[in-house]
Design a protein around this nucleic acid. Structure first.
Lengths: 135, 135
DNA sequence: ATCGCTGCAAATCTTTTGCAGTAAG
DNA sequence: CTTACTGCAAAAGATTTGCAGCGAT
């Protein structure tokens, strides 16, 4: 299947590149709509799908659409398959040696490294701190 | 709000810990149902919510439920707020120094490090390789 | 001319929620 | 006894899809 260069696809990539945040499909839809008022949300979804499959943009998250869970809360890593969404555990001894270890273990299979640190953003960190002081 | 120790909550944690995969809510529901046939999917969702909020289990993924996207495909990291779901970009020079850099920059804010490598799992990697040879 | 892409709307799938009853502390 | 929790079912929210026409090559 050959991809065609439609106005919609071009504007979607263009606006997404311009944004500094990490928008959801409908947030991007609202932005794109300012330039293409007649575009549909379905078109945005279809393009995000195609574009992330081709590697032109990044789809953040684990799994295709459903949220998934892990009972092991020890510090470890996940390899998410870009193709089928499968999640593999990777247990390196420490962060420092991770890349080298992965390079030898998984040579050629890693396309991108998207590291998600779970914690608090500045705003919420101060909120949490404030609540802790109050109680 | 004080949490009570219900049978359902106990079984959910127990089964999730036993599983080596990273199940979605309804996959876990199917497993738990074998022990508690009358449990509802709603209860599973409610407990996963509570348990991940309290840190007893891990919720994998970025954002609350919606998928989100990034137009910047260069190698970089994300800090996902556990509280509001906001995603912050973090741009370290290299993987090796990441943790130290973060420790000084974001001292105390990081609860867990969940690293998601985007690439192919073994099964799909061989599929892709085979397809490449065919064409 | 061909075939992928679009807009629209309906359908599907995932997750949340209201409620009345049940169980835990 | 009080209040959190459960099952059920309905609601809400996110994403996908069928279709007929349009646009890119």
């Amino acid at each position: 299947m050959k991809l065609s260069r439609t106005v919609q696809r071009k504007v979607i990539v263009d606006e997404l590149r311009k944004l500094k945040c990490h928008p959801t499909a409908d947030e991007l839809y609202e932005v794109v709509r300012k330039r293409l008022p007649r575009i549909s949300l379905g078109t945005v979804y279809r393009n995000l799908e195609v574009l992330s499959a081709s590697g032109e943009i990044l789809r953040l998250g684990v799994g295709k659409k459903q949220m998934c869970f892990d009972g092991d809360t020890s510090r470890h890593y996940h390899l998410v398959c870009r193709c089928c969404g499968a999640v593999e555990d990777i247990m390196p001894g420490d962060m420092g040696g991770v890349e080298k270890e992965l390079d030898s273990k998984l040579a050629g299979r890693i396309l991108e490294v998207s590291v998600n640190f779970s914690g608090y953003c500045e705003k919420c960190a101060s909120l949490v701190k404030r609540n802790a002081q109050l109680s």
